[in-house]
Design a protein around this nucleic acid. Structure first.
Lengths: 351, 351
DNA sequence: CTGAAAGCGCTAACAC
DNA sequence: GTGTTAGCGCTTTCAG
């Protein structure tokens, strides 16, 4: 492994100059820089990350914490964040905080070893310059720990007090989805929402359900408790839930609004398996903008997941850069868009 | 940030002892260790990763390189590898090498800036102790670079010369899938394989097709070129491909063997959309053991993706541990298993 | 614009 | 079993 000393010798300068030249500092003459770069290239020199970090206090590494590694939304966000960070020359270290296991509000957050360990051993180990937390809710104590370390932190989709957070307005998104259905003439609308376990960590289900209820109320439609069901945000969960909802022909709704595209796809399949046509017999709408939504002809509210990841990366990068002193705004509302496809139409009695 | 010196003072020992005690070295008396641990805890001390790495030469960080961040198989592998590594106290730094962009054999691997950069700036930056490369093919030069750095490297699913590699025998897996179909009585079997672009990097499509051909040959069934089609391993790709295959009633096969579960799911949907029943009119089998396979009642050859990731992690960990000097075996054949579900049955003419 | 030198915080010989 | 000490390889004042 070539050290900086070798490069300095070959270029005929001091190690300090090599460091400056390679770091792109402006206080190096062009000719010197050229020689240094050439020397470095010739020797195949690459700086030692740990030595550089130790001396400078910067790691050029950011941590991304996600609750799931194998769910479409998080993969898409990760992809975007990773891309943004990599393009800026940062490494990304991945942390997985399984929130179905435990979380704040359960009284276990202080004792769960995995979660504790993540904080104590990993996040605080000075390995990263900053963190992106995806739909993560941290306890006050955890937040305080993070703040104490003084690392920039940006939240995505989660309600993190006192932390710059990017998120879509879930209530609005749900209203939009529900209003689309109402505008088509539906009055018997079911909602497949989040399940209480997941909810503990990011209140997603609750917020989306609230938007649903608001839209109904604005339209003067009474909320039918039997049309509220919950699932775990997976295709299979949506399928089961939709089967329940659609099974009884006397109480069958004319439309289903699922809190995620994956559940919506499950609902579409459930409808098919019950011999119902989508959208002729039942309309289905989801939220997310899933890769496969187009394939399923699923009407959805796209939330541009990959873009969200990129945006989170950019926000963080801005906090990390010494210039542009503007601190990131505390909360940024992310864009979303209704994409109408073939899974929604007017209800049977209006056709 | 608390430094080791503070802990040493509070515990009334030297910094060396603190280091030893916290690293779990056996040469520290129990009572001393207890005091050190208590002091560290009281002060909230966490070692500085960079200082520790610089001094010891170990980073406790391993890199995982994947070609896709948003495909089920890779997510599952990543999940497994991440879990295994984290449990052992390692951080994982994620690298994304988009092989659809470029790869060895295209003559661009030496010049593609992204790929070059990954090697020069990231992998060689001494940030990781070791690497897991998932279905990645490296050029001889790239392999040499990696070897020169002297970092353990384990490959998963990819043919890496001279590197311990874990992989399923794709030819065998395909034979198994095809033989299942043949044993049910099918003779008109189509295959949706990999597309040439992906193939460039890991020859997956080619190997799976070979197993398919072998099985046919063993059964004395002539290979019909028109029954060979290719797609990009996605649901949508499988759908399109299956539509082509099943569209013409005169040449329609009685079964489709897709090279991945995602393509198989697409094929199932294509069949449905053509008014064909699965498995009554057409059988479909895939490869992978996708999360949703059960849901689709898809017969498949499960390759235990998450387990593969864990195994790769364990293999690497073994190479990293100073004891057990046994170098990892060069090539390990991974297990796979035929899971028969509802998407395969005897062909129409035999029922 | 460039060099000399002092650490960054920790680990690993080497003594005792 | 524990302390002393010399770096690990780089960045960054501080001079000039």
């Amino acid at each position: 492994m070539t050290r900086i000393q070798k490069v300095a010798e070959l270029a005929g300068v001091s190690t300090a100059t090599v460091s400056r030249a390679l770091a792109g500092k402006s206080t190096v003459s062009d000719s010197t820089r050229a020689r240094v770069v050439a020397a470095a290239k010739e020797l195949g020199y690459v700086v030692s990350a740990s030595a550089s970090s130790l001396a400078s206090g910067r790691t050029r590494n950011v941590g991304v914490v996600v609750p799931f590694l194998d769910r479409w939304f998080y993969s898409a966000v990760l992809k975007g964040a990773h891309g943004g960070l990599t393009d800026a020359g940062y490494d990304v270290t991945l942390y997985h905080l399984d929130t179905t296991e435990v979380g704040p509000g359960t009284g276990t957050e202080g004792t769960n070893p995995r979660r504790r360990r993540l904080f104590e051993e990993f996040l605080l180990r000075k390995r990263v310059d900053a963190l992106i937390a995806v739909t993560l809710e941290l306890s006050d104590e955890e937040l305080a720990e993070l703040h104490a370390v003084g690392k920039p932190l940006v939240g995505l989709g989660g309600p993190l007090a006192g932390v710059p957070t990017l998120s879509i307005d879930d209530v609005e998104v749900s209203r939009l989805a529900t209003e689309h259905l109402i505008s088509l003439g539906h009055r018997e609308i079911a909602h497949i929402g989040g399940d209480p376990v997941l909810d503990r960590d990011f209140h997603l289900g609750w917020r989306r359900r609230k938007g649903f209820e608001q839209a109904l109320e604005s339209a003067g439609i009474a909320l039918e408790p039997r049309l509220l069901n919950s699932a775990d945000f997976t295709v299979a969960g949506g399928y089961r839930s939709a089967k329940e909802l659609l099974g009884d022909p006397r109480t069958r709704p004319t439309a289903i609004f699922a809190g995620s595209d994956e559940m919506a796809m499950g609902a579409i399949m459930a409808a098919r398996d019950l011999g119902l046509r989508v959208p002729d017999d039942v309309s289905v709408i989801g939220i997310d903008g899933h890769d496969l939504a187009d394939f399923y002809e699923l009407t959805t509210v796209d939330q541009f997941a990959e873009e969200q990841g990129r945006l989170a990366a950019q926000t963080l990068l801005r906090e990390l850069s010494p210039d542009g002193e503007h601190p990131a705004p505390q909360n940024v509302a992310l864009p979303f868009k209704l994409i109408v496809r073939g899974s929604t139409a007017a209800p049977p009695d209006r056709r």
